[in-house]
């Protein structure tokens, strides 16, 4: 049913031609990077960075998520529209973190007696 319709979807379709084959070596390198970054997360936890602990953990997690999306999910070679859609998701995640952080930091300043 859906296939029949997609044949005449013309204007709405933004289809992309062939499926990009990612070399096996890249998969191996990305997997290695993910493992190294996992160890890095544990390492920085042991360092007890205080206020920096959460931002550093988030930064490493963001890099790992980006690697998975770009290579394992093939976003690097995908349609621009799909990249924009993924970007929107991350943008709104930043909005959530940003405004929540604004509240927490300014709240601490407002009520702190130090």
């Amino acid at each position: 049913m859906a296939n029949t319709n997609s044949q005449h979807s013309g204007h709405g379709s933004s289809g992309h031609g062939g499926h990009h084959i990612i070399p096996f070596q890249i998969y191996i390198k990305v997997a290695a990077a993910l493992i190294v970054l996992t160890f890095a997360t544990v390492f920085f936890h042991w360092l007890h960075l205080g206020a920096l602990a959460a931002p550093v953990a988030f930064l490493i997690a963001a890099v790992k998520a980006a690697l998975v999306m770009l290579f394992f999910m093939g976003l690097k070679y995908d349609d621009k529209l799909n990249q924009v859609i993924f970007g929107c998701g991350f943008f709104f995640l930043l909005v959530l973190f940003g405004f929540s952080a604004l509240d927490i930091w300014t709240r601490i300043k407002e009520i702190s007696t130090l």
Binding site: H8, S9, G10, G12, S14
Partner: peptide, 11 residues
Amino acid sequence: TVHKLRAPGMT
């Protein structure tokens, strides 16, 4: 559905 199944001419 909105992106892929619009009829011809349905911009």
